[in-house]
Amino acid sequence: MASKAPKPDLATLPKKAEARALNFFYGAKQALKNISLPVYDRRVTALIGPSGCGKSTFLRCFNRMHDLYPGNRYEGEIRFFPDDLNLLGADVDPIEVRMRLAMVFQKPNPFPKSIFENVAYGLRVRGVNQRSVLVDKVEEALKGAALWNEVKDRLDEQANNLSGGQQQRLCIARALASEPEMLLFDEPTSALDPIATASIEELIHQLKDKVTILIVTHNMQQAARVSDFTAYMYLGDLIEFGWTDDVFFRPKNKQTEDYITGRFG
């Protein structure tokens, strides 16, 4: 809800991705129903909705996390720009996709390695092994995640020694090291205290200059604070999508209104 400047016309905003008539099935259970949603380039889009409405399911389609389990099935497409790739295409390599769209989870999940190795991991997977390159990239990623100053003198320490908020920023640094175009956050602050939460939110604000962000959050105020766009989902349907300040000030849909104002549906 940052600026008071007139909002740009949506038709002129470049998209980073776009779900088109997306259905998703866990076996026989349909979890996403005909979702069409633009994700604007270098903007933050928040996904909100009651538990079980399909937010995480939707997020996970973007980096093909569902591929890991047999029986999961996609229909429709997710176009990814500027190359206009269908992320769900059978010819698309999920590993490659996960480099371009990196996921940060609810609970910080650093590897049981040093701080340095956590961040270097993605680079090593991609075959980068030259020490000087790794050192530079790790520093850059840690700076990008606003963690560098706190850890620069202890890069060889175990990552588990960091505080929860630091661990979460480490996971963001790890994601940033592979220079993703889009970051997928699934409730990134729900395990953090208010101060650590504020620093992650500030980081999201800084990151959006470079990357497109899709964030799932249960915290209504957080969605209002960090996002440019908000999508409200209910039972696998997309109910409303729009500029965050419209959705939070005068939602078009009564269901959205009832949800964000804390009423029974």
Partner: peptide, 9 residues
């Protein structure tokens, strides 16, 4: 309460 939408208005 951090009211939103119609509550805030």
């Amino acid at each position: 309460r951090q009211p939103a939408a119609s509550d805030l208005r």
